[in-house]
Amino acid sequence: MKFGLLFFIIAASTFLNESQAQDTLKFSPNKINNFKWVPLPAVGSNPANGWMFGLAPSATWYMGNPIDTKLSNLVGNFLYTTKKQWIFSSRSNIFLDQNSWILVGDWRYFITSQPTFGLGSGAPNELGEDPNLPGVYQGAQQMDFSLIRFYETVLKRVGSSNFYLGMGYHFDLHSKIESFLDEKSPTSLEFAHDHYNRSLGFDTERYILSGITLNAILENRDVAVSPYEKNFALLSYKINPTFLGSDQSSSTILMDYRHYVNVSERRKRHLIAFWGYGNFLVSGNLPYMNLPSLGWDMFGRGGRAYAQGRFRGESMVYSEAEYRFPLQKQKETFGGTVFVNAASFSSRTVNEKLLDTINPGYGLGLRVMINKQYRTTITADYGWGQKGNSGFYLNVNETF
């Protein structure tokens, strides 16, 4: 953690002079694009990946006149971790001229590993036999796997409103899946991943989820990467038919709502942010790694205090509140945050319903805005959860 914070300070200092110069730029009505690229070297840490090294480039630009076109952004990751993982990703939110269309992309290639703990909110840290499933492990079980993900969504603005309708295609290929134990004791029980997949007719080493989404978005945020005001809402219905390549047919509904309330009219950065998120299985069955899971939202920001994938189930609800504030009287460079969150999961496999168990988290963070005009921000957070769960998170741009 200390090394991560040291890098955080060094990186902020490196870009501070440049950002202060950029902050003085003013938009011309005839000037478009204003492309800004930050090839940020990355040293970070989180519970699922350990220490990460590489590049985390961030780009912001306008696809039209800044007067009537929102800021587009792209965040990439090219990382190698101390757990011998490779992480390549590109996630984008692009507004075309006059916000007439939105293009949302989420592309990933992982050669990675991750612990899984079984299903439901009550899954413990400690390895043992699941009392609800005799002969099956619960608690920390390691998994190696590869993931290829291609998500792309196109949305059309409805009239002159901030409401959008559109469709998307999503594809997930999990392969080379292997479950194992860190402990040297012999494997005497069945792994939770393998038991779940076998019981529902999925392969335990490779599976595909492929389908289309029907989407509705309300986009009122002023700047998507670091909003100061208003709100955002997403409703997405996913259909995964076998004729598009899915191993089994299924459907899900995802709901995402974010709201930003200014505490001070003079300092817009002084605000309270709220996030509500739900992901629900509607029909059919999903492979284990495609089940709704903590920290598998688009930017992997949910569930600070817990490792990615710590909780998993057929349906999930998640909420978070964050107080953001400047640390300087006049300048906007340094800021801070405190946050609380809570998550709950359901699982038919272990007979657990939503809200039977709730897992809370809380924490605090430091912010360094390296470009005021585009609100490009380095974020460093530490979160604490239940039963000894905790983690340090170093990222680019606000959590939500």
Rank of each mutant, 00 (worst) to 15 (best):
F3W: 13
F8H: 04
T14C: 11
D23Q: 09
D23C: 00
L25Y: 13
N30W: 10
N33F: 15
V38C: 08
P39Y: 09
G50W: 07
W51K: 13
P66W: 01
D68K: 08
D68V: 11
N73S: 14
N77S: 12
I87P: 05
R91M: 12
S92E: 15
N93E: 15
F95Q: 06
D97G: 07
Q98E: 14
N99L: 06
S100L: 02
V104C: 07
W107M: 15
S113E: 15
G120A: 08
S121A: 10
G122H: 14
E126N: 11
V136T: 12
Q138G: 06
G139C: 11
A140D: 15
L147F: 02
L147P: 02
F150K: 10
Y151H: 13
E152F: 08
L155Q: 10
F163Y: 12
G166W: 05
M167T: 14
Y169D: 00
D172V: 00
K176L: 11
I177N: 06
I177S: 04
E178F: 03
D182E: 14
D182K: 11
P186C: 12
T187S: 09
R198S: 08
S199P: 03
F202R: 07
T204N: 09
I212R: 03
L214E: 07
A216R: 00
V223E: 09
V225I: 13
N231M: 09
N231Y: 10
L235I: 15
L235Y: 09
Y237Q: 05
Q248H: 11
S251Q: 07
L254H: 02
M255K: 05
R258W: 02
E265C: 04
R269N: 13
R269S: 10
R269G: 13
I272E: 00
A273G: 13
W275I: 00
G276Q: 01
Y277L: 01
G278K: 00
N279I: 00
S283G: 02
P287M: 05
Y288R: 01
N290R: 03
L291V: 00
Y306M: 04
Q308E: 15
R312D: 01
M316H: 02
Y318F: 13
F334E: 03
G335I: 02
N341G: 02
S346V: 01
S347Q: 03
S347G: 04
N351R: 08
D356K: 10
D356M: 03
G361C: 04
I370Y: 04
Q373E: 12
Q386I: 12
K387E: 14
N389A: 12
Y393F: 14
N397R: 08
N397P: 03
